[in-house]
Structures are given as C-alpha cells and as structure tokens.
Design a protein around this nucleic acid. Structure first.
Lengths: 343, 343
DNA sequence: CTGTTAGCGCCTTCAT
DNA sequence: ATGAAGGCGCTAACAG
C-alpha cells in the first residue's frame, strides 16, 4: 500500500507564487510578514490539508520530541500504569513516546536501546529486565551523553536520576503490620535475589523483625523465580516443614495470589492458619478471597514524575545532577492478614 | 541537558578520506565495493561508535518504519495485551511503535491522530474511544490514503480492515451456557448502547434466548456507563424489582466484578440465587470468589494479527482490499455460573 | 569500484 | 516584507 501524497510547503509556495521561506514563516506565525500574505498562505494550507512534517523538523533541529520507553513487559498492571503516566505527561508537554518491551530479556533490552537511539529519541525512560545484571549498555548510553533516567527496576551502578518507591519502607510497613497482628514467624517469599526490589524489600522485612526482637531462627526467606509453577512449589515446600510460618510476606502481589491459591487448595485457612500479604496493590488484590493486604505503589505518579523530570532535564530547567525520587508507599490492610478480630 | 554529539557518516568519510556515499554503501553492505574499503569503513564506524540516524533515513526514503497505535487506555489488561502483540510483531519486522491513549476522549483521539500523522508514521492501528460517534477524522485519514486498520473498538462506517473477536458468538456461548444451567431469566448488563460491543454482545444474548424460546417479558437489558458507581446502582435497581433475574450476563469482566461485589454485599448468593458471567477473561476473573465464568478473548493474538496485516498491506504482499478478521472466543466455565452440581 | 550531484521537508541566516 | 541559499544526515542515480 502506498501512502497518499502529503502536501509540502513547497507546493503551497508554488500555488501561491511565493517562496518556501515565506510559507514557513506564515505557518509559524512569524510577525515580520504582511498580514495578507500570511492569511492567504494559512488559508491555502488549510484547504490543501497541509500537515506539518515533524520528521523533517526533527532532522533540522536535531530534536525529535520523542521519548523512548523500555519496560520489561507491557501487560503488567504496574508497568502499564507507569506508561500511562509517562504518556499523558509527554503528551501534555508536546512529546510522543516510543515504547519497547524487553520481555525480561537482557538481549532484547540492548536491542531496544539501540533502535530507540537510532530513532533519535531525545531521552529515555528505562526499567530494567530481570536478566539485566551487567550495565555496559547503560554505561555507553551515559558516555554518549544521551539523557535517560531509570524507574522502578533501577541499578545504582549508573549515576543518573532514578524514580523508585520506598521498597524497604513499604516492606517494613507490611511486616510491622503482620507483627502487630501477632504473627511471630513471618516468611519472606522473595523473587530472584539479585533483583533490586528483592533486596530492598528484604531490608524492610529484616528491619521490622529486628524491631520486634524476632530471633534468627524465625527469619525464613524462600526464593522463587516468580513463575506460577515455582511459586506453587515453594509454597508446598514451606508447608512440609515442621516449624511452619504463621505469616507470609510475598514480594509481589501475583506471587501472593499464587501462594493464596496453593494454600487454599491445601486446606490452609487464611488468615487464621497463615496470614498473607503482598506488595504492589494490583487491581486483582482487592477482589481475591480473602482480599489481600498489600502495599500500594503509585504507578501512574511514578510515570508522571519520571517523565516530568526527564523533560525538565531536557529543557534545562533543572540541573543534570542525578536525583533520586523515592515515592511513598502505603499499607493497604485487608482481610488476608486480619488475625485480630475487632479488638 | 544537551545531547552528546552523534557521529555521522560525513565524519567517518573525512577521517578516511573517502566520500559519504562510499561510507553509506559500506555500512549497508553493498556488494559493489572493495572489500578492503568496506572493512576499513566498518572498523572505523565501530571504533567511532557510529549510530545510524533513522530519522534522516526516514526523511530520505519517506518511510519512517514507525507504526502509530491509539488505544482508549493503556492500563486495561486487554488493551495492553493488544499492544504487547503489536509491539512484538512490529519489532520482529523492523518497525517501532508510537503509542497514544485517548483516555476515552473523542477530542484526544483526534489530537493523537494528528500528532501521529505529523510524525509520519507509516501506518496506524486504532481502537476507538467510547466517545467516538462521528468518524470524519477517520474518513479524512482514509481520504488521505494513510494506511490504517482498526481493532476491537471498530466502526463499520469506514472501509478499512478490522480485527475483532466474534462478540456476538461469544455472548451467545455464555448465555447458552447459562440457559443450560437452568437459568430462564437472564439479564444483560450492557455498556453504553452505541458502543459496537454493546450491540454485538446483545445480538448473541438475544440469539441464545430465542433458541430456548424465552418469552419477551424475560428479556431484560440494563444499561450502565460502566463507572463503578453506576454499575453498583444498576445492580441495586435490579434487585429491587419483584421479578428478579436468576442470572446476569455482564458485558465486560470489570462490570461483572462490580456486580459481584454488590450482590455479595447484599447477601445474594452466587451462583445459587443469581448466576453471573462476564466477558474478556481478565486475570482478575480467575481469582475472584466465586471465580467468574467468562469469555476469553485472545488479546495478544489480536495485536499480532492486526500488526501483521497492516505490515503486509504496507509491504504490498497483500491487497488493500479491506479484510475483516474475526477471532474466536472461548467460553471459560467457572464457579459463578455453576447451578448444576456434578450432574 | 568510487565520487559527484541532487534532494527528502523544513528552518535560518543573509540579502534585498 | 520577502526571497535565495545552505544544510540537518542520508540515499540513489549518474558518471566515470
């Protein structure tokens, strides 16, 4: 299919017997030209259905007014909220966004980066894949002075601005809540240990336990690769132990839901036998039975803040000095952790 | 923040004392040039960290290798699955995607269209906003011969290719299932009546009822604007009626979930008192209590098919003749509709 | 095999 | 107040 011909300034100029520069000036409402010519040109442009060619302008001014976004996956509610915030913000500030998903693959993340850079995006917003453990590609981006910032899945190895939630504090909040409910043997179900959020949430978990003087032997960490199969397996393994936990803090909601399904299937009562809590506050968490206690992360706001900050850097209304934005999380108490009835 | 300087072919050419065209040829592995020069150029390019400028190429060849995507919202699981399918497909075929969300606003949809066209996308994939009831903007796109296709939220007014699910049949399947469960007064909870899917799903609903010879008086349609407030209100209204339905078919899962919550809160047992079914098969549907019977739509595949078809049109491996792809939906039987126990 | 030329659509001096 | 010229980075036709 061939695209229909797009009207250019040249054609308008020819039709009107003026020069291209005059058309250009008229269309960007330059003051230094006769109101009549301006009017004629604008009218002609409208009648010819003239559409500005952003590509040509981009090449001319070496600015594309496009932001590149790389996320591990598009279908996760959290990331799509981020993107939504980024898109709305970019749109308001006159930018478009180009999106890629790494599908949690390191190789694809690198490839995505390459095509976005080739496409001359003015800046990038990146959330790392699970597989990403080396950072040369980001270092190169940094060396080439292409503005970018990271959000949610970040690394501390590269000195750029970052937007994250206070993972450690969120985890602290929820574990503290479980402790207050009377739980004393709280297991932490972690994702891959080299993940930033796995570590950070563990810190909060440990901090809360320490505050309550929980002995070392009651600190239990289970690790899963976050696939449904392994989540299930790990839960069953945990159930086999003689000294069973009385509560589980799952690193992310989907994991918590898998755990919940497995526990229910095994006849374990939640929260009576084992209390359960997650992290993220996915829409699903509110409607499972029992409803899931979790930590709410402001995904949309994260996207807004990340995009606004990057655009501020591009507009130089803010220094290039890397900043760290740590957003507040809030505890969402629901039924999966209610050990204490109306006391 | 100013972007670091990007190396151009010109610079490579100067360093090596060759012409820009030679560099261009070497970099695209043209056969008609000396292997040695080619090697020298490629090596120099690598060492200088040369990165192709897609923007310049786009301007030159009048093809951007970018697809524009407009969806009503990014955070819905169904649309993000679509986008995921589109993105993966586009990526495989060497295209990038630029995404906009209309936020269900007609005005924003038109604005999105404009900026994407300005950005010289090679084609567009569009899913209409709820507010979109006139189609001049699409007609104009069509007149200007800019290739585009529509998916999910489509209109029949414009003769372009469309990718949808068999809404009517999916609705038929689920209502037929409810009838087989013994329900005889099945209400249809519809979204705004001018929505394409509202109509199509109603067709299937009516067809199933007709097949079972359900009398006119037991055909009940309730309309909501799909906000949680109104979903709740409509449910309560329905409960007030003396001749209460024994089953509800909700047009989309989120509506079904709102209905479920309201029913449970009013002490209505599901499915014993009222059976319930939705449409979409959101991840949430599997984990609500009772689990929700629904119709599964292949969102990711829709995206793939839509993108592949559009790209086929662009590549002219397929005619411009509008085609209609209607994907199969499948009934997902779960507990919210199980009137008949193990019979 | 390689260089020259022209131009994609637009903007910005520099003239006039 | 308007036009001409040059160039953003790259490619393609035409010479040699």
């Amino acid at each position: 299919m061939k695209k229909g011909h797009q009207v250019t300034m040249k054609e308008i100029a020819k039709k009107l017997g003026v020069s291209v520069s005059t058309v250009s000036r008229a269309l960007k409402d330059s003051p230094e030209l006769h109101p009549d010519t301006k009017k004629r040109i604008v009218e002609m442009a409208t009648s010819m259905n003239y559409q500005y060619n952003l590509l040509a302008q981009s090449l001319r001014i070496s600015k594309s007014k496009v932001l590149g976004v790389i996320v591990p996956e598009l279908t996760s509610h959290f990331f799509s909220s981020n993107i939504s915030g980024i898109q709305d913000t970019a749109y308001k500030r006159g930018y478009n966004i180009m999106i890629c998903q790494s599908n949690e693959s390191f190789e694809q993340e690198k490839a995505n980066l390459k095509t976005l850079v080739s496409s001359q995006v003015d800046g990038l917003l990146i959330s790392l894949s699970r597989e990403t453990k080396s950072y040369e590609h980001l270092q190169e981006l940094y060396n080439r002075e292409i503005p970018f910032i990271m959000f949610d899945r970040v690394t501390e190895e590269i000195p750029v601005s970052k937007v994250t939630v206070d993972d450690a504090h969120g985890a602290y909040l929820v574990v503290n809540h479980l402790l207050k409910q009377g739980c004393r043997k709280i297991a932490y179900f972690s994702g891959p240990t080299d993940l930033y959020i796995s570590k950070k949430r563990k810190e909060g978990y440990l901090e809360a336990l320490a505050e309550f003087g929980i002995p070392e032997k009651d600190i239990k960490v289970y690790v899963t690769d976050l696939t449904t199969e392994m989540n299930r397996e790990v839960t069953l393994d945990m159930l086999k132990e003689e000294d069973r936990p009385d509560a589980i803090f799952a690193m992310i909601d989907p994991l918590a839901v898998d755990v919940m399904i497995t526990l229910k299937e095994q006849g374990i009562k939640i929260p009576e036998d084992i209390a359960l809590a997650g992290f993220t506050n996915n829409p699903t968490s509110a409607v499972v039975e029992p409803s899931l206690t979790t930590v709410s992360q402001p995904g949309y706001e994260m996207g807004q803040i990340a995009a606004n900050h990057l655009l501020d850097q591009l507009d130089e209304v803010v220094s290039d000095e890397p900043q760290s934005f740590v957003l507040l999380t809030t505890l969402v108490e629901r039924n999966s952790s209610k050990k204490i009835k109306a006391s």
